[in-house]
Design a protein around this nucleic acid. Structure first.
Lengths: 204, 204
DNA sequence: AACCAAAGTTGACACTGTCAAGTTAAGGTG
DNA sequence: CACCTTAACTTGACAGTGTCAACTTTGGTT
């Protein structure tokens, strides 16, 4: 393994993890189009096909990267929600802002996490689903709590409310990320407006 | 040209249009990944590089396809809005349903129209922008009208309202299209819920 | 009739993901 | 210690991609 004298370069030691890290770095640096197995391998200093001993194919590697993204996002949601000093409205406000900020800070990763590359055609790995579903469910749970406390004036259907809410943040995030909304300085303003559109008549 | 005896196969006659049509068909049949210039050319019965005389590169072809998509979508929006028999609430309802239905009926085309492939890195062609912007602007204009008539209880900022609204429909559409919301039978229900989340306290 | 520009062709290059077959070395067993 | 299984890694190969350069065909204009 990697001791000081870097002997024995044949076996890398922790190639799987290294691949994930470097691939994610490449993703952030130059976008998904620049992430190729060959470039990745060469950058890690290993032969073209070495990654195949750790990932079934390129798709599996991408799923692995997305997996970590969902853990991050889940963590962010949790942090905001568990801040006991905030009111309900503030929790709601923070969820929207934090979510879109995460997407904005990690555009290519976000794109990967929610893109059809990974989800369509049943190409998502079990591990990816195991990491993504809890993240989704947490959002539903939060919405349920907000709804119970009267934040939205609609039927008590937490799943539907959460789907619409998530749709909104996801949509705004994607329109920015994909370069359709181009004025990044307006992100916060749009988030504010979204909050007020949902909450104008909330009981609390 | 293509007369009955199909003489003179060397010059196709209307290759540009044919390429757009066949490429869009391929897109709908098997998804963006199956759309390659070489397969397209061979399917049209022309050599690999013939398309380059009508499109600068693959990106330009994709932009051309998206262009037509925006014309369609614009048309759909117009139709709904100009139906004089509907109330304002019904117009709003119809916009949301029609929009998401369009995306659902043309998932790969929608993906292409709004994906970063086309919009990021300044890779959108002028023609694409000329076809997309009026479509966007029409949505802003509709929102402005709705807002004037008191459909939303927030400041009279039509641009912001429209951005949030569009975010919502775009997000819901994408979550379905990309395979994250998987139960297609719930599309209408979610749309209904979205409508009610925005309108619970509208003046009209 | 001559010619030009547009449209279409073939050959080539660098790049991609992935498979098959061979090589290296680390770890457990006798 | 020697042995051997097996995971990790390598090289060679193949089919597929977008795109460029150089060539050929053709229709329309002068």
């Amino acid at each position: 393994m990697n001791n000081i004298n870097e002997k024995s370069t044949y076996h890398h030691g922790d190639l799987r993890e290294t691949l994930l890290i470097v691939a994610t770095k490449m993703l952030q640096e130059s976008g998904i189009k620049e992430v190729s197995l060959r470039k990745l391998a060469s950058r890690v200093g290993v032969s073209r096909t070495a990654p195949y001993h750790h990932f079934k194919d390129k798709n599996a590697l991408l799923c692995g990267m997305a997996e970590k993204g969902f853990e991050q996002l889940h963590q962010i949601n949790k942090c905001g929600y568990e801040d006991k000093e905030l009111s309900i409205r503030e929790h709601f406000y923070r969820f929207i802002h934090d979510y879109i900020q995460f997407a904005h800070n990690n555009p290519d990763l976000y794109e990967l996490m929610f893109g059809r590359t990974i989800w369509k055609d049943k190409s998502s790995t079990q591990e990816l689903r195991d990491s993504a579903y809890p993240c989704f469910q947490f959002q539903v749970a939060m919405t349920q709590e907000w709804q119970k406390k009267g934040l939205f004036n609609v039927d008590d259907n937490a799943l539907r409310a959460s789907q619409v809410l998530w749709g909104t943040v996801h949509g705004i995030a994607k329109l920015f990320i994909d370069g359709i909304y181009t004025d990044n300085s307006k992100i916060d303003e749009i988030c504010d407006y979204a909050v007020s559109m949902f909450l104008t008549n909330a009981k609390q």
